[in-house]
Computed example of a mutant assay.
Amino acid sequence: MKGTILRRLPRATVAATAAALLLLAGCSGGTDPGDEATPSETSATDAPAEVEPSAEDVAALEAVTVTEGAEGADPTLEFEQPFTVSAAVARVITEGEGAALEDGQVLSMHYVVVSGADGTTQGSTYGAEPDRITLGDEKLIPALNDVLGDQSVGARVLLAIPGAENTALMLIDVADARSIPTRAEGEPVVPPAGLPVVALDNEGVPSVKPVDGEAPTELVVQPLIKGDGPPLEAGQTVTFNYSGWLWDGTPFDSSWEGAPFTTTLGTQQVIQGWDQGLAGQTVGSQVLLIVPPALGYGDQERGPIPANSTLVFVVDILAVG
């Protein structure tokens, strides 16, 4: 229930590199960038206390130089190898000239990650689609939130992150920032009888009252709020808030406890029940999904999700792009 990402397949994109680096230990969905992410049993408050960087850490980062690459190519980071720091440390290289960044905004960013041990590139989005983070997300490394907190769109920052084997250096360019709603907005829809009953608190956070009896064997897609935005299509980048429960009402995951979840729909980055059930639903809608095992995790256990589980989700579709 920690806002982890329920992914169907190993993450094939370089976004895995950013997720593994930028999330505090214990807060990400998986332990390895290539592993399938599973719901975390560790809360953000259980994460290790943030260690303040030393004067030596700050000086080491100041000594790193950045050379612009050709259009669409990675910038080059030059530094004395091996590069190490004792704590996460960040600095602004170039201040942005766009709109001021605000907590809660979804930031689009390009980045390159290099190994402090030998300078090899570990991941990059230059020349490809940008990655996204939510500014102020408590699961992000505080050094990143702090350095971006008083910056603007167009800012370029350098971040050093110590690791078990070596330090990673990450150059980040903030390409865009968007403020998005936190909950569905539209016309309420009265669902048919026999489905789990959904209630919302004052902030829009859902809870469910399970129903007795056997779970459905087919995918159930029931709008609860009909938004007036465009319908979702495969290949679109979509931002959601969601909560998930087992058929008996046991909660296992919720983005409401952290930041909204962004994924690319219809590309097998999430379970099939999401790809199939959310296609065609409109932005601003809230959708109840009941996902049979065949369209979820099948006969494989995923953390607190037992094998052969029917999953119940309430999904708020917040934004596209």
Rank of each mutant, 00 (worst) to 15 (best):
V238K: 03
V238A: 00
P223E: 13
F240D: 01
A234I: 01
L224F: 05
G249L: 15
D248Y: 05
N241R: 13
P231Y: 05
P231G: 11
Q222R: 13
L224C: 08
D228Q: 15
A234F: 10
G227R: 08
P251V: 02
E233Q: 12
I225G: 03
P230I: 15
Q236D: 11
T237A: 12
V238R: 07
Y242R: 11
V220I: 14
G229S: 09
F240C: 09
L246P: 04
W245R: 05
W245I: 01
V221S: 02
V238H: 04
W245H: 04
F240M: 11
Q236V: 01
P230G: 12
Y242Q: 04
I225Y: 09
S243R: 05
Y242E: 02
G249R: 10
T250V: 14
E233D: 10
T250D: 10
T237H: 00
S243E: 06
V220D: 03
G244S: 15
Q236W: 05
T239F: 01
D248E: 14
W245F: 05
P230W: 02
P251Q: 13
P223G: 12
K226H: 14
D248Q: 04
A234T: 12
P251F: 09
D248R: 11
Y242L: 13
G249Y: 06
A234W: 02
P231V: 00
V221G: 03
Q222D: 10
I225T: 13
K226E: 13
F252T: 01
K226F: 01
G249C: 14
D248L: 05
K226I: 00
W247Q: 00
D248M: 07
P251G: 10
P230N: 15
P251M: 14
Q222M: 13
P231R: 02
L224Q: 06
D228L: 13
P223M: 11
V220G: 00
K226T: 15
G235I: 05
I225H: 00
T239V: 14
T237S: 13
L246C: 10
L246T: 07
T239K: 06
Y242V: 01
D228W: 08
P223K: 12
G244M: 06
G229L: 11
G244L: 03
E233P: 00
G227T: 04
P251S: 13
K226Q: 14
V220S: 08
I225R: 06
V221D: 07
N241V: 06
F252W: 07
Q236S: 10
G227L: 07
Q236P: 02
S243C: 07
D228H: 15
Y242M: 04
G227S: 14
P223N: 15
S243L: 09
V238S: 01
G229H: 12
F252S: 07
V221C: 09
T237N: 10
W247D: 15
W247M: 11
T239G: 04
W245D: 00
D228V: 10
V221Q: 08
K226S: 14
V221I: 14
L246A: 10
G229Q: 05
I225P: 04
T250W: 07
Y242W: 12
W247N: 09
G244T: 08
F240T: 05
S243G: 14
T250N: 08
F240G: 06
G235Y: 07
D248T: 06
L224W: 06
Q222W: 03
L224N: 03
V220R: 03
G235S: 13
S243N: 10
P223R: 11
Q236C: 10
G229C: 11
